[in-house]
Structures are given as structure tokens and as C-alpha cells.
Design a protein around this nucleic acid. Sequence first.
RNA 1: GGAGGAGUGGCCGAGUGGUUUAAGGCGGCGGUCUUGAAAACCGUUGAGCUGCAAGGCUCCGGGGGUUCGAAUCCCUCCUCCUCCGCCA
Length: 431
Amino acid sequence: MLARDFLRTHFAELPHLLRNRTYDVASLARWGELDAERRRVVTAVEAMKAERNTLSAEVGRKKRAKEDAAAEMERAKTLGVEVAALEKRVEEIEGEFFAIEQALPNIPDESVPDGADETGNVVLKSWGEPGTFDFAPKPHWELGVELGILDFERAAKVTGARFTVLSGEASLLSRALIAFMLDLHTRENGYREVLPPFIVNAASLFGTGQLPKFEADLFRLKDTDWYLAPTAEVPVTNLHRDEVLKDEQLPISYCAYTPCFRAEAGSAGKDTRGLIRQHQFDKVELVKFTRAEESEAAHEKLTRDAEKVLERLGLPYRRVVLCRGDMGFSSAKTYDLEVWLPGQNAYREISSCSNFGAFQARRAAIRVKRTGADGKGRNEYVHTLNGSGLAVGRTLVAILENYQGADGSVAIPKALQPYCGGLSEIRRPAC
RNA sequence: GGAGGAGUGGCCGAGUGGUUUAAGGCGGCGGUCUUGAAAACCGUUGAGCUGCAAGGCUCCGGGGGUUCGAAUCCCUCCUCCUCCGCCA
């Protein structure tokens, strides 16, 4: 959510500040009307409450003095009825008011490029050379099936489309990647590992911005307000929901491995082959809580931490800054990391690293107690950030496609071999 | 799943209808003392909304109710704790 006083003081500029973003333009004008009416009615009802409180105190005084208070009680009762009527109106206004506020997307950082869709994104850097092959590199869905380590058909039988069974070396590689990534982030990059619940409640999903707008993308557990977590961002960011943190606790850096579950309504027909777009996938997530003035630098650091994983694995990638129109609802600035996939002759997203500013912190009430220049304590909203470090399934895909040989074998990156019991390559089964 | 108990400010904790504008403690901040620190002592310190301001309103797990007046009484939901049952 955006700050209410910011909306007021920048009201005229809001259409410009929110250009290329998706929201109900008419709701802005309505917000202005409701803001004025709300303040008018609230002022009136509070004056009446103040009078009633004074009367009640007088009743108390008279009763203790054994005097008659019937007149005050009568007047207070009448006031109470009027207060109740006005309060009902305040509730109506606030309901509509809040509905508008919580549906407004975050305002992009000034450094974010203009643009309506992914064609407006800007490549900032590239790392590594896409390998040259003296044979036609295969996509992972062919390689993996031929190696007998990816099984799409049985997954469809067991569950349905967009699920995959990893077996043998693929399963080992997946487990190795999770351990490798967590070790890198905890030992070298300064993150604390957490293993959160994989099921989250509606309040947590509101806090990070998935609800109420994007319920269709989630799996909900029948007859509950519990959902399968679409990303560890949700449980980990919400660890500190409704908390006032101590200044010296910041910055906080967490990393977490979790499976992620996405219903992905509306993605039918996209990436239907292979394990690029699945209903269930594994991810190691990086989450940071910082003071407001530190979040920009923290965003660069977090993105570098994710890039290091790709560099250690020798996977060519590029960093892209998303334009205004392609960013997520809650984000102020997003870098995507795209890994090179020779089997598809394309760069594909493998990590998304975002700075949310105070947008999530306002929704989730995550604050920090700070001491001002005047020596007085005040609560400020923290800034929240997160990024994939990395998506495990897509990293597995990248290894299979980048490290394939002409004979259909796949080499294991050096950095990963200790996590695979020394295994150096995957070969086709003899039979 | 069954029975009982409990949710109060950053934390602990008192408070069972009207000076609660929430006692007291811890922690934080400022000061006295000190070469410096610690200790001790003194002062100060919740959040949100509204108002130009003075001020006002709301908040004691969430929601609803009774009352002139609710942290306190009633209903309901949630969470935690203890014991029992079950279970990886």
C-alpha cells in the first residue's frame, strides 16, 4: 500500500507516477472524494463522542456524590444513537476507501525505465559466453527423458499437467543444488537460513500483496483461509508482520528453501513443455528487511548474491531491469536474471530480485523503532526486498542444456560435484 | 480430537463497571556522579486517526453485544499453555 499522506500531497501527480501500471484510473478521483468526506464525518463524530465522554464522566461524579444524574444520562443516550448512525457511515466510507488504497500498485523507482510490456525491459549486463556446440543442443525435455531422469508422463498420471517426476541423477542434482545454494548464502553472503511453513494464511498473503488481487494464481485449501505458499517470500517476509523491530536488528537477511505452488490461471499454453512452468517447483529465496535509506544498496547486493550462484555454476546469464509495465504489483524496482538455455536458443528468467520499498511493510505493519535527531523515538516502516537465489528447477534445466555433450551425456559443474558424492557426469543407461 | 487455563504497550506484568489521561518492572533515551565505564540516583519513553493549532477520538488477541460509561460483564471466533488421546 502507498502512504495515505503521500497520496494526498501528490494527488495531482498520481496518474503520472503510476503510468504504465495496471489500476483503476477512476478509483483515484473517488479516493479524493472519500478522503474529504471521511475527514468531515470523522471530525463530526469525534466531537459528539467527546461530548458523550464528558457527560459520562459527569454521571460518574454525580452518582458518587449521590446526586441525580438522570438528565445527563438521557442526553448521553440520545447522543449515543446519533454517534452510532454516523459511525455506520464512517465504516462504509472506510470500507470503500481501503478497497481503493489496497488495490493501487506500488510506484516505480525513478530509475525504472518507461515501457508498457517486456519489450521495454533493458539488459544491464551479461556474464559468460553462451557455449558453442558442434552439434544441435537439445532442449532439456528431450535430454532429460533420454537420460531417464525426467518423467513427465508419469507425473501427469500421478497428478496432472505441469508436474514432473525427477528421478535418479536429476533428483540428486536438485537436492545438491538446494544445499549448494543455501551453503553459499549462509556461509559467504551473510544470510540466516530459515525453514518456514509451506502453507500460509490469508493475512500473510495480503501482507506481501498476493491477496486479494491474485487469488486465482493460488492453490487454496478447501474450506480454510490457508493457501499453499506460491513463494517463500510470503512466509519469510511475514515472519515480522505486526512487529516493531529494534534499530540494531537491521538489516535482516534470510534465505529459505521451499517448494512453491502456483495455480497460474491464465498461463495456459505458455511453456507447456519441460519444467520451466510448473504448478510445483523448488526455490531458494533471499529476503531482506532494511532501513529505508539502505534498501537501494541492499537490492544491488541481493541481486549480486543471486548472480554469484550462476557464476559458480558457470552458467551464462544477463541482468535485466524490468520496465514500469512489466513489474509486479508490489515492486518498486525489479531485476530479472536470465540464464542462457542453448536447447531453446534463448535467455530465460531464473531469478527475480525486487525492492518493495515500504509497500509490503505498510500492508504487513513491519516497523522499526528509530531515534530521531531530536532524541525521540519514532516508528518507521522498514523496506522489504526479496529475490530468487535461485529457482532450483530452472537451474537444473540450465545445467542439463549448457553442460550436454554430443553423446547425450551431461557434465556436472565442478562446484556441484562435492554435493553429488563426486559424480562428474550423467550418462545414458546402458540398456 | 477431549478437558482445563490464559491472551494487557518494544518485553515482563498489575488491574473484575466511573481520578486507568493502563500501576510497577525490564529495555531505550537524556541527565547527575566518575579520569572513563559500571553501579546507584533523577527525569523521560506506546500506537493510529483527526485538527492550522489548542486539543479531540480510537486501540488492553479479532469481531459483536449490554450500559450514560467496558481492559473489567455477555456472546462468538482465533491463538497459546497444561493434561489426556492419537501420530511422523
